[in-house]
Design a binder for these strands. Structure first.
Lengths: 242, 242
DNA sequence: GTCTATAGTCGGATAGAC
DNA sequence: GTCTATCCGACTATAGAC
């Protein structure tokens, strides 16, 4: 992954000292939290810059500047550019899990075993999915980062897959319950076609906005997308059930 | 767009001399076509490298090496890195148009005015779309380049939109005919949800392959995707018609 | 038309002061 | 924990031989 550097580095070794190593010297609160703040700002800035320019296109100088941090802070807190990239992947996975995780957990309830209950649960999941993927300002940056990883996977994809894979598995169980048939490749494929109907509005956004003459994907546009996708899903699943 | 260079350059000025300027000196055939060959190889290599690394991440050295050409040839043939990028966009648009254009042209036939005829035409279009997007080895590189432009549009997006916009317009006419209703935002949105069902297998390919335990998107997998998407479309459009 | 050599700039990483 | 100064490799673009 590292291309321009031939020198041996400590690479992924995160050298941030644990809290216990700080010694017994008293710190004022603002002072004590500065490290954590810098770390968070670096991850935030890195998500943006890596997402826009890719791993190689991004420069640690730009990231540091955007984070209002010093260039050397990246090495200090993460160990280097590559380790920062992986930390961003962890952050993205955790952020999305925080938003969708609760809904997924509620859906994994074994009490959801009838097609009707499953259908309602799927509606909630799609609703959340649309809001998270198309609604939040952060989602744009998450999506850029993830799509890059999908088309050109690196070690960071494993980190992201830990969450995405679980989400797909849960959705597959749900669709299988709705169709009253065992999980299968066909059911899994159907899940992907549902995901695709939402994803297209993120991934082909420039095309969509121009063709629809929309200025942005605001509340109204998102509601239209949501209604249509829900309608499509109902048609697909009732068609497939028969 | 150019970030690292402060100096004024001739930029997009394509300095390639026209055929007439070649003078009266006789050239052997192999000699005379070398320029065109180099140009084609540069575009081909640039499509790959730009797609993988993005505009800024890509380096003219890597492109020149991959094209088996000299570094200076990029400046000679295209005028610089940015002009090469735009030339790649032209090439991508032309390549896709060459594959899908004939089908689109056949569909623009005013004789297709009944829902039945339109349905058959849509089936042909989807079939072609799946084959081009998921089937060809080149499509992977086209998709990488286009998706990058979608999420971070540059001047190259205008070039690509000239084709994509037309394709969307044709598909919208077709779906409107199937539904026996005028073209509208709703119809256009429906077109995008159809596109998304195919696109997801390109854009989230890493996730799909891992979740399906597929090694690659070969003939068999593509046939499964095609069958499912066709089925979904039939369900969606018959559901929407009622 | 293609090549080598080179100028000028910017990249990631580090050392050491504070 | 943060900062400045610095190393040195790699980048784009150019000039000029062939």
């Amino acid at each position: 992954m590292a291309k321009r550097t031939k020198r041996k580095t400590t690479s992924a070794a995160v050298r941030r000292p644990g809290a216990g190593e700080r010694g017994s010297r008293p710190y004022r609160r603002a002072q004590r939290d500065r490290g954590a703040e810098t770390r968070a700002q670096l991850i935030d800035a890195a998500l943006d810059v890596f997402g826009r320019l890719g791993y190689e296109g991004a420069t640690t100088r730009v990231i540091a500047k955007a984070a209002n941090a010093n260039l050397a802070a990246i090495v200090y807190h993460f160990g280097g550019k590559e380790a920062l990239y992986l930390a961003v992947a962890e952050h993205v996975a955790a952020s999305i899990a925080a938003r969708i995780g609760p809904v997924l957990a509620a859906i994994d309830d074994p009490a959801i075993d009838t097609p009707e209950a499953a259908q309602a649960a799927l509606a909630r999941l799609v609703d959340t999915f649309v809001d998270v993927l198309l609604g939040s300002a952060e989602a744009e940056r998450w999506a850029r980062f993830i799509v890059r990883e999908q088309m050109q996977p690196t070690a960071a994809f494993d980190i992201i897959y830990r969450f995405l894979g679980g989400a797909v598995a849960t959705a597959t169980r749900l669709v299988a319950t709705i169709l009253a048939r065992p999980e299968s490749d066909e059911v899994r494929l159907r899940v992907f076609t549902i995901v695709g109907q939402v994803l297209v509005f993120r991934v082909a956004q420039a095309l969509v906005l121009r063709a629809m003459k929309w200025r942005s994907l605001g509340d109204r546009e998102r509601a239209a997308v949501k209604a249509l996708v829900m309608e499509n899903i109902a048609a697909i699943l009732s068609g497939a059930a028969s």
